[in-house]
Structure formats: structure tokens, C-alpha cells
Amino acid sequence: MPVHYFELTEKQIGRDLLVEKFSDPACGAFVSFEGWVRNHHDNRPVSHLFYEAYSKLAINEASKILEQALVSYGINSVICIHRLGRLQIGDMAVWVGVNAAHRGAAFEACRFVIDEIKLRIPIWKKEYYLDSTAPLWVGSEVAG
């Protein structure tokens, strides 16, 4: 059964349960993307992150992105989960899964979804550093 949804969560993302939703005899391809918290940014050592979202707008805008992916690439299902709150180094911040009859559409749609999510969805990442620099909202010019 095709599924498509976007979810924000403060809990750890459980990839195994998500992958099970993509089992479909009509689909020969499944592609996923995982974004993990890394320990550096712009040559500064990162200690942890904090994600904040404007949830209602994020869900509204994400549903448009997923709908666009379904229509443009002819995929079967697409799910995107994004974490909120405090994340440690190595935690999974975002997961995107796509299945389709063939791999080309699955790869392209997965890339499209993560790129658009990063570009359009009102989610903000605040980085905290191990050195003496002040925490920074990434994308903003001003430390705060």
C-alpha cells in the first residue's frame, strides 16, 4: 500500500520500522537517505545540536514537497522524518525513504526530497561548539 508522510519527532528515528513500510511486490527499488550529526562545521568542533521547527508550516510545506516527488518521479511511496530538540554527535537528524518500480526514479526522488526539505522547511539548527565560540543558528550571521 503506497504511503507518503512527513513527521517531526523528538524521539530517536527507528529506521527498521520505517523500512518495513516500503515492502511492496510492485517495487524493485528502495533508496534511503540518513542525515547524521557530525562533529565539525566550518573548522570548528561541534559538541551537539538543537533543532527547532515551526511545526504547522513545516508539515504543510513538506506535504507539498512529497506530493511533488510523487507526481514528478512516479514513485510509489515516500516518507521523511526529521528530529527536533537536542541531538548528540552521530544521532540521525533526518531520514528519507523512497520506493519505486525502478532505481532511477527512487534515487532521483530521494535526492529531490532531501534537497527541498533542507531548502524550504522551517527547521532551524543551533550548533554548540567545544571551543569558546558562542552557539550559532546555522544560516544566520549573528551568534546568539
Partner: peptide, 10 residues
């Protein structure tokens, strides 16, 4: 109404 500063999800 909200004003959305540069986003940085993902």
C-alpha cells in the same frame, strides 16, 4: 503571522 529566517534543517 511569522517571519522565517534562513532555514537549516537536514
Amino acid at each position: 503571522i511569522s517571519f522565517i529566517s534562513p532555514v537549516s534543517g537536514g
